[in-house]
Every structure is written in C-alpha cells, then in structure tokens.
Write a protein that binds this DNA or RNA. Structure first.
Lengths: 339, 339
DNA sequence: TTGTACGCGTTATCAC
DNA sequence: GTGATAACGCGTACAA
C-alpha cells in the first residue's frame, strides 16, 4: 500500500523546500528549469495529486454542490439529478446527494450537515412535510449565511433565492384543453392536497381550462389524495362513484393505476375515456396503452439549476436580484388519448 | 448576511484564547464553569458549528462516501443509493454520487476526483464499458492507496475488495424453473452480451435450469442485445422469427416491451405465454399484466455495502480478508405467469 | 484554569 | 532562484 504523497514528502526526498515544490508544480517562472523538471518528474512518478480538502480549507471553496431532494426512487427527481450532475461535473464540481424522504426533520438535518463547510451551494426541492408546515427557517438561515440556494420544482415564495420550475399550471391547462378538444365533457382530476406547490398549480390550470371553455367545475370530479404515495382504495372508490370520460392525474402512477381499474371495468381507452398524466417516465412509455403526459423536462431543470447555482458561487459579488426560470412543459401524446 | 462564525471569532469577542474556546465547547473538565457557560452561551447565540473541512483536514476523515454508478435513471440503482444513504446518514456520513453513464473514462475521472481526499471510501458498480474493456487499474490504484472500496452488483474478480451481489445465477435459475414447472417448453432468454457480469450469471442460471430438467438449449432462443438499452428492432425480429411459450428477460424494460409485442399479435399472457423479468420496480408493478420478477433487493444491497464500507473505514487495522456477500433473490409472482 | 505551539496540506507573500 | 512564514479552522499536548 502506497499512501498518498504530499508536497512535504516530495520536498523531503528532493531536499528542497515545500514552497519550491509547490511553485515548481505550478510551472512558476521563478523556479529554474532544472528544479522544475526534477520536481515534476518525481511528482508524476509518485502520482502526486493535491489534496482537495487542504485546498478547500485554503480557498473556502469546496467545489461540492449539495442536493437535497425528497426522494430518489422517482423518475422525475432522478432526471433532475442527472441534469445537475451533467453540468456540475463539466464545471469540476461534485454532487452530494441527500434525501429528505419527504420529512421536514431530515431536510433540516441534511442541510445543517452540509452547510458547515461541506458545500458551496444548495440545490433543493422541498419535502412535502416542509410545504405542509410552511416552515422555511432552515432555508432562510442558509441564505443569510451567504450560501447560494437554488430551489427546483417544489418551491416557495417565502424564500428569496433563485428558482427553477416548470409552468405547472400551463401544463395542466394544456392537458385539460386537449381533453376538451377531444369532446370530453366529464373530466376528472386526481391530485394531492394543495400544500404541494405543484399540485396546487396543476389544479389551477385544470380549473382555468374548464372555465375558459364554459364548462362547469364539478368538485366531485376532483380527487385530492393526501400525498404523492398511492392510495389505491381512494382511487377505486372514486371511480366507483363517479362516471367520467377523461382523467388528468398529477403523476404517472396515479394514471397507470387508474387506467387499470378502468380497463377492468371493460371500458376502452382511449375510445371511451382518455387519460393524461404528469412526468414522462418509463411507466408512461411502457404502459398499456402508452400514456399521454405532460413532460416536465427534469434534466433540463437540473442543468439550469446547476448553472444558476455555479454562477452565484463563482460571482458572489452580485447577491440579490434573484431569478425564477420557468420552463414550458410539453405535451407528449401517446395512446391514452385520441390522436 | 451573517457569515459563519469560527473559534477565532469567539475567542476574540470573549477575550480568551482559541483553545480555551475549543475546550469549553467540548465541555472539557479543564475549563472553569464560568468560562464554559460564557463560551457556550455565546456559541449558541451565534450558532457556532465547527467547520467540516477543517475537521476533515485534521482527522484525515471526511465522513463522505463516494458512490460511482453507471446510471441513476434506473430503478435498481436508485434503490441501491437509497439503501446507502440510509445507513450512511445514520452513521453521520454524506454520500457523494457520481455517474459514470456507462463510460470508462468518466468512471476513471470521477474516481480520481474523489480519491484526492474528498471521500473516505468508495461504493461502486462497474460501468458496462469498464466490464467490456476489463481494465480495472483505476480500482486497483485506489485500493493500493488504502482507500476502502466496496463493489456492488456489477463486480469483477480481478479486484481484491469487499463485494455485495445477488445470486444472479440463482435468480435466473429460479425463474426458469418456475416457467418449466408451468409446463413451458420453449423458453426464451433476452439478455445482453456476456461482458456484463450480471447478464453472464443470469444466462448461466437459465442454462442450468434447462439442463437440469433435461431440456434442450436452443441457442436461437437466446437473444443477446449489445447493452442494457432498449433495442426495439432486435426484439421485434426475435419474436417474428421464433415461436416461444415463455420469456425470461434480464430487466424490466425488455420484458414490458416484449409483452407489448406479443399482445399485439393477439397472444394471451399468461395463458399462451409467460413472462418473467429482473428488477422489482414500478414498471413491473404497474404493467398490464403486472410482471412476475426476480427481485434484486437493491436497497438491502446498498445498506450492506454502506455497512461494510464504514466498517472498513472505521477499523482500518484489518486490511485484507475481503468478503463477498451474496444476497438471495426473491421471485415476486404477479400476473405475467400462471399462479 | 488558561494559553502557547504545532500540525493537518496547500498556497501566497515576502525575504534572502 | 529558493526558502521561510503566515494563513485557512480546528484540536490537543504541553507549558505556564
């Protein structure tokens, strides 16, 4: 086992000073060709690499980005991470991923751990519990310390920072309009409680589209589940009690599960009933029938977030003046709606 | 903006020495009650938290784990990360995730970045390109430097380190046996090239089960795709040319896609043909019909890997004596096979 | 009971 | 052209 070699080791071996070694490795003009060659050769031979931690301490820059998200076993967040990684890596940054698992406490703990010097900035998406409580002090503390923060997808107005979201209202609006355009009259919405920022916006878009088409909004056709987790029973009840000819769901799973229930009843998709979901993931692509969805472009969101964050980190002069980038969702039409 | 406060700041404000502050915060017996209370109150007031980087430099311990995986938009890897996070977090470690995106070069670059002091140990799963090339020097270098390494799922015999895998051969064997038990005679296998360690093992299990049941192995019934990515055309060709009554696939996507092709031909699942896949993800659960799969217990693998790694990190005395933990796969029976 | 000095690995400044 | 010194923030052995 050959442990990592340090400047000091090289200096000792070559009988020069540490600073000479440091300069030689940086190809400084102050150092003689002879010494430089000698030092560089030795360094190469022993595969010298500067210690990141020491450099971080000196520069007060870690080149690490902290990412705190509610879940990872979700296609959307997975694509966001991928986008972040992509940009971050290209800029020489590492990504530290922490999962809040939709828990407020874990979100706080993770942020505190990372805020003590481990990272240069945060990218995060709020846990559902945090949104429900409406307690954003941990975010405010971080920004007050001068640590840049970019909020992604699940955001809040109560914190002043950069944000990247998609226009969820528009997405739901587009989807609903599409269903209306196909002659659907009884359009249901399966969503979650309004404390989730995205669900609230989507519900808004749904209402807006109906109103604009002078269609009555029947509250009985709106099913609000208590979280993004599947609640099979509620969905089943809902379809037993209501007769609808189109369904908009705020995620893939609700949609696919609903389609199955409907198919079991012998109702044909998309002939008798249409479905549109949110998130263009594997489920949508490989469901049967394949799903028409509102694509959220998570990878793009991740890339933009990383870009905004790194810009902030590397130009700490201009604080304030925060931006919110709003991406446009796209309707990906497949077989769960009429073409 | 109130920047982070340091020991030095406290010392200056309270007109004591830095070490006094340090000791006071640690509740050292050497320090008078008075001073301790004063210091602790002040520290609390200004929310003092020790700087992780400084501590890392001092202790030569970062409390960071480096995770290098080929992809993240895959349910299996996602569950592995979750398992790692779970254990790591409980032990006070952070997880730095790097994606190789199945590329050898990116795998090497990522490892080198992290190996220069950023992490205490690695958990990784080999990229397909790395397995194809069979070049593991970057892993060997890391272990030679004394950095603990735990290989997960996609492993190699050529590197001496701890490993966590599932018994892929057994999984495929169990699945194939199940199909045979249902009276299937023409069992196909859709897999990838053998350079992927898991595919090779699964193919082995398939063959073993057939041989054991005195069934002929028809090589035409084995489709080897060049990677884990979907190759729709090849699969279509395969089913056009071969008539089979059961299919075992090495992942969910191959399975679901194959089922769709079969359904389009009007063949009934599971009446006329059975399907079994690998990975118990969302697709399997929500496919129509739902999928019988070999569950790989990714979260468990992640947890065990994290545990093995942290054990190594924290007991660096006993090097060598590496273990390979082999988890048993489980057959999750759903509607794509006869019950 | 408190403070000084040193070291972790690196870089930048200044002196020789 | 080279080297000594200080500094980043912390902890600790040792001195006062």
């Amino acid at each position: 086992m050959k442990a990592k070699i340090t400047l000091k080791d090289i200096a000792r071996e070559l009988e020069v000073s540490i600073s000479t070694v440091s300069k030689a490795l940086k190809n400084s003009e102050e150092i003689s060709r002879d010494t430089k060659e000698k030092v560089q050769a030795f360094a190469k031979l022993y595969n010298y690499k500067p210690n990141n931690i020491a450099i971080s301490l000196k520069n007060k820059r870690t080149k690490n980005i902290g990412v705190v998200i509610p879940a990872i076993v979700h296609h959307f967040f997975t694509t966001v991470i991928r986008g972040i990684e992509k940009h971050a890596n290209a800029k020489g940054y590492n990504v530290i991923v922490c999962l809040s698992e939709e828990s407020f406490d874990r979100e706080v703990i993770n942020m505190e751990m990372l805020a003590n010097g481990s990272i240069d900035g945060f990218i995060m998406s709020l846990s559902s519990e945090t949104q429900r409580k409406g307690d954003y002090n941990h975010l405010k503390e971080v920004t007050e310390q001068g640590i840049p923060l970019v909020l992604v997808d699940r955001v809040t107005n109560e914190v002043d920072c950069d944000k990247v979201i998609i226009d969820d209202e528009l997405g739901a609006y587009m989807a609903t309009k599409k269903l209306i355009g196909q002659g659907r009259k009884k359009i249901a919405l399966i969503t979650t409680d309004d404390y989730l920022s995205v669900s609230k916006a989507r519900t808004g878009g749904y209402r807006k589209a109906l109103l604009e088409s002078n269609m009555e909004i029947d509250e009985k056709r709106i099913l609000k589940l208590s979280s993004m987790e599947m609640d099979e029973k509620s969905i089943e009840d809902f379809f037993n009690k209501n007769s609808v000819d189109a369904v908009l769901c705020v995620n893939e799973i609700f949609t696919v599960y609903s389609m199955r229930l409907i198919q079991k009843k012998g109702i044909r998709i998309p002939d008798d009933i249409s479905f549109i979901g949110f998130t263009d993931g594997l489920l949508s692509k490989y469901a049967n029938p394949s799903l028409t969805v509102v694509a959220q472009h998570g990878e793009k969101m991740g890339e933009i977030a990383a870009q905004m964050l790194i810009d902030r980190v590397e130009n700490e002069n201009d604080e304030g003046n925060y931006q919110t980038k709003i991406l446009e969702p796209t309707l990906v039409v497949r077989d769960s709606t009429i073409n």
